[in-house]
Amino acid sequence: MSKAVAQQAEEQEVIIDLAKANAIIDKYIDLPGNLMPVLQAVQDSYGYIPQVAADLIAERLNVYPSQIYGVLTFYAQFHLKPRGRFIIRVCVGTACHVQGAQRIKETFFNLLHIAHTETSADLRFTFEEVACLGACGMAPLAMVNDDTYGKMTVQKVDEIVAKYSAIPLD
């Protein structure tokens, strides 16, 4: 993660209610090997790992803050900044690349102005490039949360963005 992203993560963490994190830690505190489950539960609960929550976990589980950060950056499953309600994944694997993944990616960018791992300001969308999703026959491929969209076209990008933009955020 770049310094700029770290800063961005910092700025976004204005008011985080730590009650949920505290409750999660309470639940795991006496179990051995509790760091991963706590981090996973905190991520499930907040959608990402806020820095203040990482600090709290470090203090309460008596783990170095640096060590937690090492874990968070080692595993791709952890996110250090808020994530959008809809995670758009565009495959850039070989098959998809050959079939024009680049255009698909650019079209998303032109519509949403978010690049790889970035999240829209309204927290609606997060955009990610991923390696082969294992459905090369349907290349180029995109996913939004658990929904798969094969044989993507520029036209379909417009439709997808329109569809998910229409769903109200709670």
Binding site: P65, S66, I68
Partner: peptide
């Protein structure tokens, strides 16, 4: 700590 992995790996402090 070690931050990130693979070719990106570096040494640094939290956040």
């Amino acid at each position: 700590t070690f931050i990130d992995r693979g070719i990106e790996t570096k040494i640094g402090c939290e956040f």
